[in-house]
Design a protein around this nucleic acid. Structure first.
Lengths: 217, 217
DNA sequence: GGCCATATCTAAGCACTGCTCAGATGTGAA
DNA sequence: TTCACATCTGAGCAGTGCTTAGATATGGCC
């Protein structure tokens, strides 16, 4: 990870190298572990050099986030268009793509949704959201999502995939020895099936069927 | 936020004060903004004093996280036991409690699930998870959750509420002017209804009903 | 009350950050 | 070849987390 050093003085493509090394470090050790001095050394350059490409640390993060949102959108579109030609499958494909992206590009994802927000430098964010929105709209049109307000549906779907990705990346899942490539399809498919089931069987129809629950505590 | 200063020298309850000030700062400005020197000043104490209560910054975070997981569990139990006496309502109550806790205690929540993991100092984490697990098990017994493997159901439910909380706290939701007290019940209820619907209408029964979707792009 | 082991706090200082800046060094166009 | 410009160097500043020697208060003991 000490890319193309063209001459002794001018680096060649320092900007790209800084991004790549940063992403690798963040992927392995988290955002807070990124150190500009060490970053410069790894890129084979002096401590002040990075500041000619990124005014502050935050600017570096913003660039990584922007790149990440682009990749995410591409991945979602790719998987959606490769899925079987029904609305439920396409929705599930978007979900799979979201989680797959997050786990395959932890470095990007961590920066994209880091809690201590940067400010809204990133504009690509809503596009992934819109893909989901459209997919669920398609589900409604096909009768495989509940009719009515879209917002709760979209929010639930997005929250589910985002939560799964986040929990996995943060190592918060109590299931050890379980890979996300296995989990993501399960959750995504379940979500698709649940939308369809609720569309065919709205809650008012089975109000009576909830029996007393079993013992607790 | 400069609590009980008993004498000039000994503080009185510096440990508690440090925790409270930290939580307030993290709530407002994020984890990275917490500065031990400024923290000491705000607590009315010299820069070295905090280290007699927390060996390192991480130890402070660990204490906050531990406290947070305790509060979370309490809140979930409280809301569950106050809910109507059917499995679906109780599951929804747990979800509401999770999101409500996160938004009402941003400081705690941010530390509890901060990406750059601390190490597994915190043992309370699995308990909130277990509450969810048991609630969904109850739903299965009452016939208001799909039969079969629990894991995808639990994972989906947890991911949904965790994702919603996370997206909200990080300010990533494209809906501005919308409060989580409104969102959380919607998503939680939807989840409960979807579990019930899928239990009554498993996917195999309506394989044929997904029609062609509408135009795209 | 007086004494002292102990917990608590102070303040100086070390190593390491993010960031700045004056000046050195290449590069490409004229 | 010349020179305006982009790029990089390296020293240095201010602000971190953390350490440590020594000062100060507290509570149990007689």
């Amino acid at each position: 990870m000490r890319l193309k050093k063209k001459s002794g003085y001018h680096h060649g493509d320092l900007r790209r190298t800084l991004l790549d090394v940063s992403i690798a470090v963040i992927d392995k050790h988290g955002v807070e572990a990124l150190n500009l001095r060490e970053l410069a050394i790894r890129a084979g350059v002096s401590s002040g050099a990075p500041y000619h490409h990124f005014a502050q640390r935050e600017a570096l993060f913003a660039a990584i986030a922007e790149e990440g949102f682009g990749y995410l959108e591409e991945a979602m579109i790719r998987e959606r268009d490769a899925a079987p030609d029904d609305a439920t499958s396409r929705l599930a494909a978007l979900g799979r793509a979201y989680v797959s992206f997050a786990t395959a590009h932890r470095g990007h994802f961590r920066v994209m949704f880091r809690g201590d927000l940067i400010g809204e430098l990133v504009q690509a964010k809503p596009r992934a959201f819109q893909l989901l929105w459209e997919a669920i709209e398609d589900c409604q049109r096909s009768g495989v999502a509940p009719a009515g307000d879209l917002q709760p549906l979209v929010l639930t779907a997005w929250s589910a995939v985002h939560g799964l990705a986040t929990l996995w990346i943060d190592g918060a899942l109590p299931y050890k020895n379980l890979n996300p490539e296995h989990l993501a399809p399960k959750v995504s498919n379940l979500l698709g099936h649940m939308f369809a089931a609720l569309a065919h069987n709205p809650p008012s129809r089975r109000r009576s069927s909830s029996r007393r629950r079993a013992v607790r505590k």
